[in-house]
Amino acid sequence: MTEFTPLMSLTGGMLIGLAAVLLMAFNGRIAGMTGILTGLLPPIATDWPWRAAFIGGAILGPVLLGSVGQIGFAVSVPTPWLVVGGLVVGIGAYLGSGCTSGHGVCGMARLSPRSIAATGVFMTTAVVTVFIVRHVAGLV
């Protein structure tokens, strides 16, 4: 069980949205984590400094927030699953040109048909995967 946190989640979501709007307003970029990360892997993109700065900021944010309050974190699956899950997430997000932030927030917000389709697909496969893992196979 995890606690239902509508107000914190709504506030956090609105900050994520604000960050997406500001990144477009200042840098003219989509706030998609997969796209930003891809440019930092070899062959490294020539515009790597803004990408590295965004990632650095995104890591530092929770450090600052953690110094003023408790941030919930729990992993309910064994470590090998994280390795497999990480590989699968990386391959899928690269092949599908985006993840939750790029397609689910930025792309959906500008009504991109590709992002709407991608978000519908990955939300569905995630729900089906969790159903199979927890209720069919009875794991974790």
Partner: peptide, 26 residues
């Protein structure tokens, strides 16, 4: 461009942590 991306990244990270998206169990 680098400074704006860094500050906006900070905001993004705070938003993610506050929202619960950084919590795999949630």
């Amino acid at each position: 461009r680098t400074i704006s991306a860094g500050l906006i990244g900070l905001l993004f990270g705070i938003g993610i942590a506050l929202s619960g998206m950084a919590n795999p169990a949630k």
